[in-house]
Design a protein around this nucleic acid. Structure first.
Lengths: 182, 182
DNA sequence: CGTGGAGTTGAATACGATCAACACCGGTGG
DNA sequence: CCACCGGTGTTGATCGTATTCAACTCCACG
């Protein structure tokens, strides 16, 4: 991870949109549904992002100690409502990076934007996958899979689908036979 | 995901490094340890990336049907040996994207490179997290955590560590008390 | 102080893995 | 063209790991 100095000195335009801030511990600085999400570079202290499922269970997504970045990255860039909480666990000093900093990224070249978009899609996909693996049962993961990739069930051997879902082919087979009974 | 046409027409430099290729099904086109890894844009057919753990167990990382990209992305960009297998599941037509295409990305602005690096770190972290969640027991995940973030154990409430590892705080507590006995 | 959250421990339970046996093809060679 | 073989998928029995529920301790904080 690059140093703060690099981040704020290398580009004058970027400097305009970063703000230093001290935040007391146990402060929630961003909530799901927030439209304007920001990035936080941690100079000192400790931040955490997490989400809460329908049952109220809490899942930590990332810890960000000194020199880490934390943000609800897809929301920041795609300008959609956030899905994560972000809070301070300790008294912290952070550099707040506005969405404008991301927009800065997007002006130079078209092919670059395409690569960025691919990268971001990747991040989004992986984020969802982590959330699924942490919060869902085998049955829920399977149901989510057939909703998301309905075509693939017929094109891919079931044992590979099982290995994608993180379960054994036997378990997948039993799940499928139970579903048919309903 | 952007269309193939956009990808290859928008940038002439990029065009120089993409190659169309037809590959028969059940062909392994990339293996762990390969130094030169490539990106594959799927025009037709179906590809899969996967890894195999020490016990020989196989974990599917991504399916890539038509219009998807698949690659061992960190390896491509950081020029390090790959960690994933990539194979065709069906007869496929792909566009091979050379690492040069990625290097194209990296010339324009310094602040942009920093953003890209952050994104890539994020992807790498998430990839490892997915692999951990799929292939490791609670104990292994905990041990990996204390190796990777030794400072955090003392700064973060254990229940949050549990929620990061995808286990309950009770299970984490039992794991920890067992470790002390050894 | 004293109260509530964090952490621990134990018992009962549930979920998925493992092991094993077998049915069902799909492809290959005779 | 058919018979065989190997791999995929299914099903059942058993086992192990992690969850759930509950009770209790210990601080930290108000």
């Amino acid at each position: 991870m690059k140093s703060l100095e690099e981040l704020i000195t290398l580009n004058e335009n970027l400097r305009k949109v970063v703000i230093n801030k001290v935040i007391a511990k146990k402060t929630i600085i961003q909530r799901p549904g927030d439209i304007i999400t920001k990035g936080y570079y941690v100079k000192k202290g400790l931040l955490r992002s997490y989400f809460i499922d329908e049952k109220g269970k809490e899942y930590t997504f990332l810890f960000a100690p000194e020199d880490w970045m934390i943000s609800d990255i897809e929301s920041s860039i795609y300008n959609t409502p956030g899905t994560l909480f972000i809070e301070t666990l300790e008294d912290s000093e952070v550099v707040i990076i506005d969405r404008k900093a991301f927009q800065e990224m997007q002006s130079n070249s078209k092919s670059l934007n395409i690569e960025l978009t691919k990268l971001l899609n990747r991040v989004a996909t992986l984020q969802k996958r982590v959330i699924m693996l942490m919060s869902s049962s085998a049955i829920d993961r399977y149901n989510h899979f057939i909703e998301t990739y309905p075509q693939l069930i017929h094109r891919v051997p079931k044992k590979m689908i099982a290995s994608y879902l993180g379960i054994t082919q036997e378990t997948l087979s039993k799940i499928r036979s139970k579903q048919l009974k309903n």
